[in-house]
């Protein structure tokens, strides 16, 4: 089963990468983008036996740094 873990910076944490992307979007000549925040998506291929709490543990102990980041786990239908 495929699982996607989305990791994003918490609100209020400066995201210079997002800001640089925003600036580059403006360089494309496209208006109307109010803000850009960059994160990452980690895709796991796991056995069905892997539990939700094990996924939470992976996300909170390793994939995200809870001081600065949030995460969201999405199980994909096979």
């Amino acid at each position: 089963m495929k699982v996607r873990v989305f990791v994003s910076l918490k609100n209020g944490v400066l995201d210079p990468q997002g800001r640089a992307i925003h600036h580059a979007i403006e360089g494309l000549g496209i208006d109307g983008v109010k803000d850009v925040r960059a994160g990452k998506m980690i895709e796991l291929d796991v056995e069905d036996s892997v539990t939700d709490s094990q996924l939470e543990e992976m996300a909170s102990k390793l994939l995200a740094n809870m001081v600065i980041e949030n995460y969201r786990i999405e199980r994909l239908a096979a």
Partner: peptide, 17 residues
């Protein structure tokens, strides 16, 4: 040390990139 939890906080990308 911050990732290991021995010190508080985190080190982000430099503000100027």
């Amino acid at each position: 040390l911050t990732e290991a939890g021995l010190l508080p906080g985190a080190l982000l990308r430099n503000a100027g990139m």
